[in-house]
Design a protein around this nucleic acid. Structure first.
Lengths: 219, 219, 219, 219
DNA sequence: TATGAATGAGCCTTCATTCAT
DNA sequence: GATGAATGAAGGCTCATTCAT
């Protein structure tokens, strides 16, 4: 992955090499922060991964911390909008149809290399307010976004009504987080990802069985 | 917490001071590793926390890494045995009675300062096989230990039988891990701990409602 | 000799200062290794001698050991070629003329500050295979280079023929080594060097008297 | 050679272990100083070689430097007296008989492990006044001791008279020093020692041939 | 006399960063 | 925009030594 450094001549490179050195540096930094942690990652490593010298970094970022900050800001909650799942549309269908798709899409997103990197990155850096806090924000956003949908289903009698809609969402997505972080990390193999999917499928089946409205749906 | 070093004179301290420096160093290291991560923790910090000079560490451990290794080896799965929950005894009671107690005890253990430290420590260091892997081992141990109990309840018709006992255990404890790591970290306040307990209680209530055998218990 | 460091500002020095830091570092290291030995020499001393901070060394060499290795590699046998003594040319002259000149040139070379430094350096570092071994290689090279010349003289009856030519060379140069290392060290004064020359002259006179062919030269 | 430390119980050992810990320490120190040099030798190494802990050294010597000083003081010139060669007695015999014996005895002494250690020790520590200076003192003592003998032979016409007796001694022993230090070091093998002896024998033969009085001995 | 535990100094090296080019 | 050479701070660790036992 790392271009061998030292082969580069000095001075400003032809602009054909593109302006994406900055992007490349960010990617390298993300990968290394996720794998090693911020403190254990050196600017030399980041630069080497991109094939430049460490001093070149300071043409793009004022400091190592600044790279971290940029990444941290990007590491926002997974956007449900980006998932193309419109609650209004979904409301017309039944939980048995929608829930598996919901989970599948979430898993697809969590499985992307970039998401796995961000996940490890957040997990590592600060159990307290910083890292896991960010995960929490993501969860809250999900709850917010989907609670309406589940409430609608409750009103229709398609899903049990004896707990809040928020909790229903949480009971669906909360249990997925452990397999997610356990199996979806930057070094995951295909086997890991498949294992994760199996755990997830089992949970979804259980969830649907549990939450199906106990009484028969009203006519 | 940190005794001020530098005041001590040169040689061996009089035994009247009677402190177990080795243990103290391990505790300080655990706290710092959990809070800052291994790489960001310096041996001088560890030593200062105990009130000795950094060089004194090397009379007890061959290296900083060795301290980590000792801690890592200690950070085993939470022993269910130590929880004083005997499956045979529990089998005589109903899930509605036992499950909340089970969870309460687990939470009690996870809430201890030491467990919170170890949790953060493991979370930080190595998402892949090392840190979270250890968490996974803990989960597996739990599944192993309690699956028999749940199977017994299934046989008695006290709990739904349409999923495996293992999954029943997982559906109980899996969802607790996120609130656990979210709210039970080394810097948790009482509010954090209370919040965690509330999430947990909600889940237990939901779980019991879901898993109660759908057919009425056999007479 | 040491430029005072610490006055320099942070970044790259303006090229107007135009110094070859790498060479300067090697020279300083050689002097210190010779005087104090490798282990007793600190990188800070080396750097200070050159007027830079110790960290600057690592822009030029990967380690202190690497500096040693470079010097050790350089400390090859004194090149007779460099002495400008061509055996073919010398063969036309008599031992009584050539031998004193040979010795004088060797002594001139051994007397240079750099040669004295290398001598002490080699002497210090490893009596066994490393240091003195290198001296031995130098001696062997000399024997090799000059044996032909002495054999030629033997054939002409200009020098005694009852020992091998190799031994004749050795009997000339071997005895010079003790005064050499005794008096030609990095701290030699002019008096030391003069003393060395006196011992040497005495030996040469003795050598010529001894090795003159005992029989009268053939007509 | 090193007893494994750590097996010793604490406190004062039974006096049966003898009072030679001090001697053992000195021997270990000599070996290490010779092999590694003073600076590169640690008190831990010395102690370990003897099977005690480093702190124990300070029950016998006030400092590492003190050990060095004791050794250095011992490293006196090889005593010709100890060789049992009485110049008066030798004077009654011819150079052709005495010289080979003289050299053989010197070589025997230089070949002892202890002498080899002291040799390397002196060679290493201070090319200038300290180490080689000591060697020089040894040489001077030899010259002093034997000059009378050679002068006697000169008077008898048994050996050439055109150089001073002092130089005759020097021309005999000076050339031996290089093979001595080259082949007689602490790690010498039997092959090394044999090689040294061969070089030496060649030199002695050459020396005798050279120094035999050119004129026929007076009747 | 020997040990374990501690100190203070210092060592080699690494790191993030700066600056002239 | 990128580089090489430099800095200052610090980091892990070793060393000689001290002291209570």
């Amino acid at each position: 992955m790392a271009t061998s450094p030292g082969s580069r001549r000095r001075g400003r490179p032809p602009s054909s090499e593109g302006r994406d050195t900055r992007e490349a540096l960010l990617n390298a930094a993300l990968a290394l922060f996720a794998r090693l942690g911020f403190a254990a990652t050196t600017v030399r490593q980041i630069a080497a991964e991109v094939g430049v010298r460490d001093a070149a970094i300071y043409a793009h970022f004022p400091s190592k911390q600044a790279m971290y900050d940029v990444l941290f800001a990007e590491a926002g909650p997974p956007s449900w909008e980006r998932l193309g799942l419109n609650p209004e549309v979904l409301a017309a269908r039944t939980p048995a149809e929608v829930v598996p798709e919901l989970v599948r899409r979430a898993l697809d997103q969590w499985s992307t290399p970039r998401a796995r990197l961000f996940g490890s990155f957040l997990l590592r850096e600060g159990a307290g307010p910083s890292g896991l806090g960010r995960v929490y924000v993501g969860i809250e956003a999900t709850l917010e976004h989907l609670a309406g949908l589940f409430a609608h289903w409750q009103n229709q009698g398609l899903i049990r009504g004896d707990v809040t809609a928020r909790q229903l969402v949480w009971e669906l997505f909360g249990p997925l987080q452990i397999p997610r972080f356990l199996f979806l990390h930057p070094d995951s193999t295909d086997v890991d990802i498949a294992t994760c999917r199996r755990w997830t499928d089992d949970h979804v089946a259980f969830y649907l069985a549990c939450t199906a409205s106990p009484e028969r749906p009203r006519p």
